[in-house]
């Protein structure tokens, strides 16, 4: 088991009001899953991803990823945890504008002082089909290309879990399909676990498992056949 959430709750204060973003979430995620989290806006999808990525802490319950209890980590340890175990893909790509595509992918490796960073980054960019655009700045790339760079940046540290928050929301349908195919391919070929928050039915259609969050509660969990079997059928 890669991820285990037990009775996880999270509250936010909005002015004088307290909002229950997550209420008693219980969830396990196995290695190699391609999991979609769906639900309306404000349902708690992003909060769930923030807690899974150690960007935020839950108020109660426990979160364990690869056997590590995230509630026990301080800020510094959370950073190290993300560096080693998590890749994040953002809706708005969040590339560093002054760096080239290659440098954007190298950057997380330099944070951890990884050797052969350049070679690994080139390999990651090749994996997302951008070997010809390594020296381009984000402003010279299309939305789909930028998201590919962001995916390469997420996989370059070889994490076991990649979290993507609405990765196709800023892309047209053709590009969205291309990006999702890429993620699916990485999931299939490299065994990376994906958790994707989305409104997009196309994305949920590709997922091996879909969970639905509404008003902070996990209201639906639709397990699909094991990934390899699904692929075999495809």
């Amino acid at each position: 088991m890669l991820v285990e959430l037990e009775d996880v709750s999270k509250r936010y204060q909005l002015g004088n009001l307290w909002v229950d973003a997550l209420r008693g979430i219980n969830l396990t995620i196995e290695r190699g899953e391609f999991l979609a989290v769906k639900g309306p806006s404000g349902s708690g999808k992003s909060t769930l991803l923030n807690i899974l990525s150690a960007l935020d802490h839950c108020d109660s319950g426990s979160v364990e990823i690869e056997g590590i209890n995230l509630s026990a980590l301080n800020e510094h340890q959370c950073s190290l945890f993300r560096r080693r175990h998590i890749g994040i893909v953002f809706q708005s790509f969040n590339l560093i504008p002054v760096l080239t595509a290659l440098e954007n992918v190298i950057y997380p490796l330099t944070l951890s002082g990884t050797v052969n960073a350049k070679a690994r980054a080139e390999k990651a960019l090749e994996a997302v089909g951008l070997e010809q655009l390594m020296s381009q700045r984000p402003t010279q790339l299309s939305g789909g290309q930028m998201q590919r760079v962001a995916i390469a940046r997420a996989i370059v540290s070889q994490p076991n879990l990649i979290l993507a928050d609405e990765p196709t929301a800023n892309l047209d349908s053709v590009t969205s399909e291309s990006i999702m195919s890429l993620m699916k391919q990485l999931n299939r070929e490299q065994g990376v676990t994906f958790v994707i928050a989305t409104h997009d039915n196309y994305v949920t259609g590709l997922a091996s498992r879909v969970i639905t969050v509404r008003d902070g509660e996990l209201v639906e969990d639709e397990p699909s056949p094991p990934f390899t079997l699904q692929e075999a059928i495809a």
């Binding site: 800020e75 950073s79 993300r82 560096r83 560093i96 944070l111």
Partner: peptide
Amino acid sequence: RELGTIRAMGGTPR
């Protein structure tokens, strides 16, 4: 946002 991204990638406060 850029600094937040660096933190999200595993950059420590230091």
